[in-house]
Amino acid sequence: MGFSDYMLSDSCRQSAGSELRFDGGQAAPVAVCNPGRLSVAVADGAQARLVLSHGAGCCSTVDVAVGDGASLSIVELFVGGRSTMRIAQGAASRVALTSVVAGDGSAEYRTALDGAQAECDLGCVFLAGDDEHAQVKIRVEHNVADCRSASTVKGVAAGRGEGRFEGMVYVAPDAQRTDARQTSRNLTLGDEARITTLPQLEIYADDVKCSHGATVGQMDSDAVLYMRQRGLSEDAARRLQIEGFVADVVMRCAVEEAGEALLAELNAKLERL
């Protein structure tokens, strides 16, 4: 089942409106295709799940307000398209996001942690095939004390593809006891593929735990050899290794039921890389 099939299935509620309000407990995820201008509000204490897909040529701006004690899970797939999502989080709120940019496309997230004990976990994958340009930008603002954020971004570029990650963690002067982590791991396939990664920290508080790390590497030829020695073809070994590289992000899919459809899209894209 592809991602669009999943979004049209009974397990989702389709929506075409430009405003979404969530007031209650966790119901079926709401699915929005090519959202354009969309505002999303999750009331204090409410729980919500959102599934978005972006097609080629679509440009979206999504504003999200998550109330105190509320939680929101988001899954996004980009098959082309660009989007900027601004998320404002209240006290003790929680946001979990899983996003895949498969091919040309740009996903930008600006998360403001405005209430104490707010938490956000962002997991993104971008895959740039030959002559494609895929990018992910993340800005997380720790505006008050005692918030936690974690971003994990995995990029793969093949052929003459280009991938780009820009990450910024901002910690305001009073945001003590901030816990912020940011990881960027990338894999280039072939000599002409390029990945640029720019992880940055801007910290104005002194009692914080912040970390960031970035790597760009190539296929592990020892692992390919090892898998071939067990009888896998070279192609299968390479694919399995790339699948393994991005798997952890998708395995922890924010909307669990969407995980399989997202993985199917990811694997289909990997097959074409």
Partner: peptide, 8 residues
């Protein structure tokens, strides 16, 4: 030296 294959 058996090889590690993360994610598989």
């Amino acid at each position: 030296y058996p090889v590690e294959i993360p994610g598989v």
